[in-house]
Design a protein around this nucleic acid. Structure first.
Lengths: 218, 218
DNA sequence: TTGTGTTGTGAAATAATATTCACATGAAAC
DNA sequence: GTTTCATGTGAATATTATTTCACAACACAA
């Protein structure tokens, strides 16, 4: 995994270089651009993980640049810095795609906190194709298993044959098959009395399903 | 399609009622709650399209309420209003899930513009045709397809062989197979120039994956 | 004891998914 | 024009997932 690079876009050379220095002092790899236009050019050859962009610049301003960047590089994190900050401006910046917003002058640690936090979030978001998501999703991709989870979420605890009848499935071994699968994935557990119930992980899965169906009402 | 309802959450009865009146004068259906807690309760029985929430309230504040709402009802639009607004507070509000932010006191038309704009956005987002859960989940249960979606989300647009190489898969027909699947499910489309990109539904799937990965790491 | 319902196992059959291979087309490069 | 790469198809194969079936242990009631 290659190092994350940061790009500082600001027409004020002093500020730009001092920001770069702060970042480099803290182990980041940072470069600079003096305008939005040159930044767009530069990013074509190397896409940074995060850009820090000034609002007011000759030519294209930071506010106009951000939608372009987010459009071409949706994963890119953007921190906007601005001298004459107002609430409205901050809200507009966030709506235009800024992930964070700093008012000038800012302290060195404010900058670093913002940078680190956003890089953390980026890393987190990039974890999309993780292995244990595999199991969870393939488990959930089966309708009967979803029904079982839903039934257990509803009834809290059920015995085997009650469950199969509840689901209206005639072949009990079929239910058993899926139940075993859920047990193996630790979404369902069986207590001493042979009753089945959701594990905490199972409850989480139900949660996910709810989010899903809310996000995908059909 | 039933009328959109708006919910105004504010402990200040005068302000709450005047906001509701403004909204009703303009043809909206609006109700009120005097606390975050009672709002959570109320929303369980009827989910509004948009909520207007005050920042400072006894008990749970608006800032704490928003993530809860966004978590349970991701489609819900939230406008935060606040008396002592600062840039930092506005930024924090937007990061916590606010879709818009108004400083008190606000003019009647500021409120109305914000409400209308957010309801427009909501309508727009809902117009995208919705995939169903079975298809969505079985599509997402395959790792390569998730990687393709993630790659396209990241790069916005890719040609076939670039995608194949990007994923590090030697057999291009394998990628083709999954790409065809994604195309068939309308998560990915191909433009005139043979480049592949996410459809709006595909973007939604990426969203769902994010929801997922935020929940799974226990 | 005999029957009846519950809860299970494992193997075999079947269905669904995924991978590989052999080949084809058209565009660009040499 | 020949080579090379990008893009793609369809059939054969391999792999997984799911269903079905035959059977068995146990409890409990008639």
């Amino acid at each position: 995994m290659k190092a994350e690079t940061l790009l500082v876009i600001d027409d004020d050379q002093d500020l730009r270089e001092s920001v770069i220095e702060i970042l480099e002092d803290n182990g980041f790899v940072a470069t600079g651009c003096e305008s939005a236009e040159s930044a767009l050019q530069k990013i074509k050859t190397e896409v940074p993980s995060l850009v820090i962009v000034d609002n007011m610049m000759p030519g294209m301003g930071g506010m106009a640049l951000m939608p372009l960047l987010k459009n071409d590089y949706p994963g890119l994190k953007i921190i906007m810095i601005t001298a004459f900050s107002t609430v409205d401006n901050a809200v507009a910046a966030m709506k235009s795609g800024a992930d964070d917003y700093l008012s000038k002058p800012f302290r060195r640690d404010e900058l670093l906190v913002a940078v680190k936090r956003n890089l953390e979030e980026l890393k987190f978001e990039q974890q999309l194709s993780e292995p244990d998501m595999d199991e969870a999703l393939s488990c959930l991709s089966n309708q009967i298993r979803r029904q079982i989870l839903a039934a257990l979420a509803e009834k809290k605890e059920m015995r085997f044959m009650d469950l199969t009848r509840y689901l209206g499935i005639s072949d009990h071994t079929k239910v058993n098959f899926h139940l075993k699968n859920l047990k193996a994935n630790n979404f369902v557990s069986q207590d001493r009395e042979k009753s089945y119930s959701l594990t905490p992980e199972g409850v989480k899965m139900i949660d996910c399903l709810h989010l899903f169906s809310k996000r995908i009402p059909s």
